[in-house]
Amino acid sequence: MTLLSPPPTATTPTAPSAPARRRRRPGRAGWRTYLCLAVVTALSLAPLYYMLVMASRPNSDITSSPPPLLPGGALRDNVTRVFANQDVMFAQALLNTLLVATVATVSVVVLSSLAGFAFAKLRFRGRSGLLLVVVATMMVPVQLGLVPLYMLMSRIGLAGTLWSATLPFVVSAFGVFMMRQYAIAAVPDELIEAARVDGASTTRIFFQIVFPALRPAAAVLGLLTFMERWNDFLWPYLTLDADHPTVQVALSRLSGGYYADQALVMAGTLVGTVPLVVVFVLFGRQIIGGIMEGGVKA
């Protein structure tokens, strides 16, 4: 069932013989390709570099003309001032974000694995209908329900707290679907059946056989979820009170006009951005794989 990847056309793929392949490598990149990619890379990195430059300059430099183009020596000073700022509570915000993102990530990974396994390997009434519901919910812009969601959080006394920013995101339709797709191929039916014959319960089968087999997909799902939660803005901005900011909310507060101090704002932005860039550099290959497969497989 593929609408996205078009069916192979009449051209039958035939493996070219080895010497032929060596003679004419298809689509080999020339210098123009690399030049183009270098320009794109520069454009990708330029705003981040600009952030670094501004975050490492004393505030008086920021308004100078021409604008400074090389990093200065005030980074440590600016970062210190960000953390010393009582209004913004940046250290607290970092901790809060870590907490919210970690809880949501662990929950999404575990619950998605459970549900994905059930949809892939267990037989029960209503399975295909329920799976259709999961897929359909991926298309629903639930963010638009934020008015009643806020009323709900107020009613149950959670508005303003970190719980209100976490609870709506402890499950993910995308996660369920992704884990189901992975479980179909990754967990052999024979293994499950053999465990059943040995008298293992379904729960035990999940924890001892299925979850270990799902680990690669679980890791990618975890990375994507963590990044999404770390960067989330709209809902935390609306629901969290002044005492419980996340990093992104703290950043918006920093830039909110009480401070004409752009070096301070840039230093805060840098501190809020670096953790994810580090994660990305460490796990870039997996993250890219997850995104590309999410778009094409399934």
């Binding site: 990708s44 990195l45 952030m51 960067n231 803005f233 752009q262 990305f280």
Partner: peptide
């Protein structure tokens, strides 16, 4: 190359808003 193309997506939307506003 793929990572360098994707790095803006990893940057938070708040950070993008702040940097570009400056």
């Amino acid at each position: 190359w793929r990572m360098s193309v994707l790095v803006p997506t990893v940057t938070s939307v708040a950070a993008v808003g702040i940097i570009f506003s400056l």
